[in-house]
Amino acid sequence: MSRTLEPTVIDVAADFTRFPGGRYKSDGIFSGERFREECLVPALDRGAKVVIKLDGTMGYGSSFLEEAFGGVVRSGRFTPQELQDRLVLETSDPSLYDEIVEYLTSAIH
């Protein structure tokens, strides 16, 4: 009998930083590139759903978000369908949810 894997939960504020910012690692220590490489991709590699808790930070810049989420699409390691099926975004801010979905969608094209 196959067992469903437990989702991996990333709480950005607790597991990464309350102060995200910058696109590339050369921009700053809590950049979108670093979040993608050290948190998002390893979580996706585990194979289960990935729940990303976005509340609790001071906010997000568009460069951080685009590089983290658009960048994972551009990496080609996961299909758009796979990301759609496995990424679960949790936020109290609907505009933040929409913005990330926009980056995921735009990066496909």
Binding site: F19, G21, G22, D27, F30, S31, M58
Partner: peptide
């Protein structure tokens, strides 16, 4: 650098 802690701690 892009240092969120400096802007964040201000806010």
């Amino acid at each position: 650098l892009s240092e969120g802690v400096k802007g964040g701690s201000l806010l």
